[in-house]
Amino acid sequence: MGWTSILAIYFLFWVMTAFVMLPFGVRTADEEGIEKVPGQAESAPVNFRPRKIAIGATLIAAVLTSAFVLNFEYGWVSVDMLDILPKPPESAAR
Rank of each mutant, 00 (worst) to 15 (best):
L64R: 00
T28I: 12
E32K: 10
A44V: 13
P38A: 09
D30R: 14
E35L: 07
P50W: 14
E35Q: 07
L22W: 13
I34R: 13
T58E: 06
A57M: 04
G33Q: 10
S43W: 15
K36S: 11
N47C: 03
A62K: 00
T58D: 05
N71Q: 02
A41E: 07
A62N: 04
V63E: 05
M21L: 15
A67D: 06
T28L: 09
N47Y: 03
P50I: 12
N71C: 03
L64F: 05
G33D: 10
V20P: 06
S66F: 14
E73V: 15
W76M: 10
L59Y: 01
G56P: 02
N47W: 04
G75E: 14
V20M: 15
E42N: 08
V46M: 02
G33R: 11
A61V: 00
L64H: 00
F72V: 11
V26F: 11
F72C: 09
F24S: 09
A62C: 07
F68P: 01
R27Q: 10
I55M: 08
L22Y: 14
T28A: 08
T65P: 00
F48H: 08
A29D: 04
F48N: 05
I34E: 08
T28H: 06
A61C: 04
G39S: 11
F72Q: 15
P50M: 11
G25F: 05
A41R: 11
V26K: 13
S66Y: 12
K52A: 12
L59R: 01
T58A: 14
A61P: 00
E35C: 02
A67Q: 05
E35S: 09
L64A: 05
F24N: 06
I53M: 03
V20E: 11
R27E: 08
A54G: 12
A29N: 04
G56E: 02
T58L: 13
I34C: 03
S43I: 11
I55T: 09
E32F: 12
S43E: 14
V69C: 07
F68K: 04
E73K: 13
P23W: 08
I53G: 01
I53D: 01
T28Y: 06
V20I: 15
